[in-house]
Design a protein around this nucleic acid. Structure first.
Length: 279
DNA sequence: CCCGATTCCTGTAGGC
DNA sequence: TGCCTACAGGAATCGG
């Protein structure tokens, strides 16, 4: 499931093929994503060059020279592939973006967006894009200096919800999904059910550090592949082997040997070690 | 205002 | 083997 590391990995994979490349065609086989794909708006970008590609939260943003921004979200089952020669589209290959990297020529490569569950989206935004409802309410980037234990502690003040739900709330910190929330809480030794306002300042420091650490390690490993995520070269991510608790219900904790407990918290499956996560 | 519940979707796994 | 059901979850939106 694409969380921040998987999006970062995907963007790193396509960046060399989109930055300074010109969009030459957009083929949409299915418009029924989270929000309908507006083919006319997408086609209007044809002929324009991408000047910069960046990630914000779990969104990929391709900024075009004309001022518009293409926003891509992988939802929970999406992935991108870079194709260097034509290939027959398979099931759920919903969008092809053809680019050329040289000055004037035929397409040299294609970015292919596959998303079986279609929870993702592909939207064309006009500036100022930060006023768009999807971007306006976003909290700090977890890997930036704008996020630390103090920021987290202040955001949790007065909140009685479970700490796991809080760190998955994009208005508090972006990019932390179900897998990395469980993993970060394990690293910080905090039980996912603890009420947010009961997490001390010191533990907020630990938790913020754990979030940064787990996300950075996952990016290094190319993300986590459980079922369908692949990097843009088609390879899986390898962080799955570094998961301490996620998906390990009843298996022994690597640290203490106690069986990992699974519990539904906020309608999401959650995993933790009752011995190592005692706070 | 806060936050839990619902909702979209399809592939996969498990039961019989 | 095939059919059925439960489950997976990002995050906007609804509603208590």
């Amino acid at each position: 499931m694409p969380e921040l590391p998987e999006v970062e990995t995907s963007l790193a994979g396509i960046r060399p093929y989109v930055e300074n490349a010109t969009l030459t065609a957009a083929i949409v086989r299915n418009t029924a994503f989270r929000w309908p794909v507006d083919i006319a708006q997408l086609r209007a970008l044809v002929g324009e060059r991408v000047i910069h590609a960046e990630r914000r939260a779990k969104y990929m943003l391709l900024h075009f020279e004309g001022g518009a921004t293409l926003l891509l979200h992988l939802g929970m089952s999406g992935h991108l592939r870079v194709l260097h020669e034509p290939r027959e589209p398979k099931k759920h290959d919903h969008i092809d973006l053809a680019f050329c990297s040289d000055k004037k020529g035929s397409p040299t490569h294609t970015i292919r967006f596959n998303d079986p569950r279609r929870f993702g989206c592909c939207l064309v935004l006009q500036p100022p894009i930060n006023d768009h409802k999807l971007l306006a309410q976003l909290g700090p980037e977890p890997l930036s200096d704008a996020f630390d234990g103090t920021v987290l502690f202040n955001a949790l003040r007065g909140s009685k919800r479970a700490i796991k739900n809080a760190i998955m709330d994009g208005s508090i910190v972006v990019g932390v999904g179900n897998i990395y929330a469980s993993e970060a809480l394990f690293l910080a030794g905090i039980r996912p059910t603890l009420r947010a306002h009961r997490v001390s300042k010191a533990r907020c420091n630990q938790l913020a550090g754990a979030i940064k650490q787990v996300l950075e390690k996952a990016i290094e490993a190319g993300g986590t592949t459980l079922n369908d995520f692949t990097q843009s070269d088609g390879k899986p991510g390898y962080f799955r082997h570094e998961l301490n608790v996620y998906g390990r219900a009843n298996e022994p904790c690597y640290t203490c040997g106690a069986p990992i407990k699974s519990q539904i918290i906020g309608q999401r499956s959650s995993f933790f070690c009752i011995r190592c996560q005692s706070f």
